[in-house]
């Protein structure tokens, strides 16, 4: 009796499955890994799937398939589906496909498109010198995520990006200048020193002070000491922060005075930097009017 029951059950299952077959993801994956181009196309299309976790799973498989998936991924860079476009661009970036630079750069330049941040990210991953001007061009983009990822990508490109950034900074202002200053600061290349000193006199001086601190060049000390008198407390804090990394006796004297700044964080950073310069414990007045040592913000 039980035997008939299970036989019927199996027949029922089979008839259900033949009416509307389930996608066999394992088989599709196996075919795609074997180089079956149709399977790769089908797999890459699944990057548009909205089921939780599915697109991420397909993405990992696509990356493992690697080179064989590249032509299909290139076809999807201009997809109207924002998720498919995002995953395809991310995959091309992860796979460091130099041939994808023109298409990804084009997406980055189309301001009406969503999720362009991934284009900036991918160009940074590909890492060719050719992407430097493309990334610099979006440092003043309207979208803050595009600006942020472009800055990060330029930092990743490192020395390759320095001279184009220095040339750009000579004329830049606003968000574009701020992004370029942050990038050269993190690359820590002294070829940027003069242009950063020039920027330390302008509207982006708070950013320039942080970048000068990262360069650790003592010739920036005078500009930073002057920054301790700035009317903007954020600028004073950044100047105090930067002096800890490069300051000498002159900086120590100036920081001793800003231990009594009106703003708590300026006092705190003055004390922290004084400890870094002198190697001795320094007390500052916290917001409860108690004299305490600053905690070590850098491990």
């Amino acid at each position: 009796m039980l035997r008939y029951f299970f036989a019927g059950l199996c027949f029922f299952m089979l008839s259900a499955c033949t009416a509307d077959p389930v996608l066999d993801l394992n088989q599709l994956e196996a075919n795609a890994r074997g180089g079956d181009q149709q399977a790769i196309v089908q797999l890459v299309d699944l990057l548009s799937a909205r089921e939780p976790g599915l697109a991420d799973r397909i993405y990992a498989i696509t990356i493992e398939i690697g080179e064989k998936a590249v032509p299909v991924l290139l076809d999807k860079v201009h997809s109207k589906d924002k998720q498919l476009r995002e995953y395809a661009i991310a995959a091309l970036g992860t796979l460091k496909v130099v041939d994808a630079i023109p298409a990804i750069s084009d997406v980055l330049s189309q301001k009406a498109l969503e999720r362009r941040y991934v284009a900036a990210w991918a160009l940074g991953e590909i890492g060719s010198e050719a992407v430097v001007p493309v990334l610099i061009n979006v440092l003043d983009d309207d979208n803050s995520e595009v600006r942020r990822y472009a800055t990060r990508a330029l930092i990743k490109l490192n020395k390759t990006a320095v001279m184009p950034l220095v040339e750009y900074l000579a004329k830049a202002s606003g968000e574009g200048a701020a992004g370029a200053i942050r990038a050269v600061g993190d690359i820590t290349d002294k070829r940027a020193l003069q242009v950063l000193l020039a920027q330390s006199q302008g509207e982006q001086r708070a950013e320039a002070f942080l970048a000068l601190g990262k360069l650790r060049d003592p010739s920036a000390e005078a500009a930073l000491v002057a920054g301790l008198q700035d009317p903007d407390s954020l600028v004073r804090m950044n100047a105090a922060m930067a002096l800890g990394r490069l300051g000498g006796p002159v900086a120590a004297e100036a920081l001793t005075k800003t231990l009594e700044d009106d703003v708590h964080v300026v006092r705190e950073w003055s004390a922290r930097s004084l400890e870094m310069i002198t190697g001795k414990p320094v007390l500052y007045r916290n917001s409860h009017d108690e004299y305490v040592r600053p905690y070590r913000v850098y491990h």
Binding site: R147, R148, T151, L234, M241
Partner: peptide
């Protein structure tokens, strides 16, 4: 919370 730099951006919160 950063602006693309390697280190995150400092957020200054005033007492009170």
């Amino acid at each position: 919370y950063d602006k693309g730099t390697i280190e995150p951006s400092a957020v200054v919160v005033k007492e009170g």
